[in-house]
Deep mutational scan, measured.
Amino acid sequence: TDVTFHVNGRNLHLKGADEELLRRIEELIRRGADIEELEKAVKEWEK
């Protein structure tokens, strides 16, 4: 799945995201995470 999140005026584009990653990103956004936290979560998922 390709999806782009718009967070605090910045874009986080995910290519090939699975349901697990999407749920994790949505949860972080609900908690008020900043873009750096979201990018870190994506990097951890990519490993």
Rank of each mutant, 00 (worst) to 15 (best):
D2A: 01
D2N: 04
D2K: 03
V3Y: 15
V3E: 08
V3S: 02
T4Q: 09
T4K: 05
T4P: 01
F5A: 11
H6A: 03
V7S: 02
V7L: 03
V7F: 03
V7Y: 05
N8C: 10
N8K: 05
G9T: 02
G9R: 00
G9I: 02
R10K: 14
N11W: 14
N11M: 14
L12G: 00
L12E: 00
L12M: 05
L12N: 00
L12R: 00
H13E: 09
H13Q: 06
H13P: 02
H13I: 14
H13L: 07
L14W: 00
L14M: 04
K15L: 06
K15W: 06
G16D: 10
G16S: 09
A17D: 04
A17F: 04
A17Q: 03
A17N: 03
D18A: 11
D18Q: 07
D18E: 07
E19A: 14
E19C: 14
E20W: 11
L21Y: 02
L21S: 02
L21W: 02
L21D: 01
L21F: 07
L22P: 01
L22F: 04
L22S: 03
R23V: 10
R23Q: 08
R24W: 14
R24N: 10
R24F: 12
I25E: 00
I25G: 00
E26I: 14
E26N: 08
E26G: 09
E27I: 09
E27P: 01
E27C: 10
L28M: 14
R31G: 13
G32R: 03
G32S: 04
G32K: 03
A33M: 10
D34S: 07
D34N: 08
D34H: 07
I35P: 01
I35R: 01
I35Q: 02
I35T: 02
E36M: 07
E36V: 07
E36I: 06
L38W: 01
L38A: 03
E39N: 06
E39H: 07
K40D: 14
K40Q: 13
K40S: 13
A41I: 13
A41S: 07
A41H: 13
V42K: 03
V42E: 01
V42P: 00
V42G: 02
V42S: 03
V42M: 05
K43N: 11
K43G: 11
K43V: 12
W45K: 04
W45N: 05
W45D: 03
E46G: 11
E46I: 10
K47W: 10
